[in-house]
């Protein structure tokens, strides 16, 4: 038997923070590749600390629903899972290459495949592009259009920016969008000045965040000038400094995220059969019903 654990932050204050985690877990459940699927959290239950003991499977794949390699993925999650032999070196990564490490948890007799975060997986690039397509309602969006991939960024951990730049570089390499930039909240180049960094008249802004919440639904829209007061909402597109900004909301709420989770587990040796393809088809047909890409709000506290 094999089990999948989706490890996310969760929140003590905001009930919506875990919505994307539940949605992706349900999509993986329906794909049927795993005997057991669990959501696990730092701030909700089951806690990272106690999730593995709830499983009957001997083989457990843990996929962190985090954007970058950093404090949570390198320290908190492995420690709380009791992966005693863990060392970040086991990922042999320079910030965006983590695939997996096979370890034993000390409180259970199980093999734990500790995977890299979803945010740095190559498949995430497709999710960002898909997000740009859905917010513009244009499956061929790109020509004459700029794309801003927005991350939190932090001076404390260079990997935070690396994940954003990694996907921006990959999308740029596809020659699809007129211009592609990585922008940040807490470091240069800042998302506040988004229009300064583009020459195109249309710019799609995709925040690389796991859940919608304070940052993606309050901070960034106000900082970019989409609205003076987030409570009043904003237009899509909104015109700022003569540029049409198409603001997409957190990429983590995209249905295709379930595929990225499956890809991560498959890379670590999980037998996922054809569920990635099946999941993609399901996500595409679900996307046809005009699902609001801004639906859902909330982030970690």
């Amino acid at each position: 038997m094999q089990a999948l654990v989706i490890a996310a932050h969760g929140s003590h204050l905001n009930p919506d923070a875990s919505d994307p985690t539940y949605a992706h877990a349900d999509a993986v459940r329906e794909a049927g590749a795993f005997d057991e699927v669990r959501e696990a959290f730092w701030k909700e239950e089951p806690h990272f600390r106690e999730v593995v003991r709830t499983l009957e499977s001997e083989e457990v794949f843990v996929v962190p629903l985090f954007i970058s390699e950093g404090y949570f993925t390198e320290q908190v999650i492995p420690r709380e899972l009791r992966l005693e032999e863990w060392d970040p070196e086991r990922w042999d990564s320079d910030g965006t290459d983590a695939s997996q490490a096979t370890l034993e948890a000390t409180d259970v007799e199980k093999t734990v495949h500790y995977c890299g975060p979803v945010g740095t997986h190559d498949a995430m690039t497709d999710v960002i592009v898909s997000r740009a397509e859905s917010v513009t309602d244009d499956p061929d969006v790109g020509e004459g259009v700029g794309l801003a991939v927005v991350g939190h960024g932090t001076e404390r951990n260079e990997n935070s920016a690396k994940a954003i730049e990694y996907h921006a570089d990959r999308i740029r390499g596809r020659d699809r969008f007129e211009e592609v930039k990585a922008l940040f909240m807490d470091e240069e180049p800042e998302v506040d000045d988004v229009t300064d960094y583009f020459e195109s008249d249309d710019v799609v802004v995709v925040p690389l965040f796991v859940a919608d919440g304070y940052h993606t639904q309050e901070d960034i829209p106000e900082d970019m000038g989409l609205t003076d007061d987030f409570r009043e909402g904003w237009e899509i597109p909104a015109i700022v400094d003569g540029v049409r900004l198409w603001y997409a909301g957190a990429v983590g709420t995209e249905e295709l995220m379930a595929d990225v989770i499956l890809e991560r587990a498959a890379d670590a040796g999980a037998d996922v059969g054809d569920s990635i393809e099946t999941g993609r088809e399901a996500a595409e047909s679900a996307g046809d019903d005009g699902t609001d890409p801004n639906a859902g709000a909330g982030a970690g506290d």
């Binding site: 806690h47 106690e50 999730v51 003991r53 709830t54």
Partner: peptide, 14 residues
């Protein structure tokens, strides 16, 4: 039961 009270069954069993 595990969705209502996560991990309670496993810890009770232990």
């Amino acid at each position: 039961v595990e969705f209502f009270y996560p991990a309670t069954v496993a810890n009770w069993h232990r």
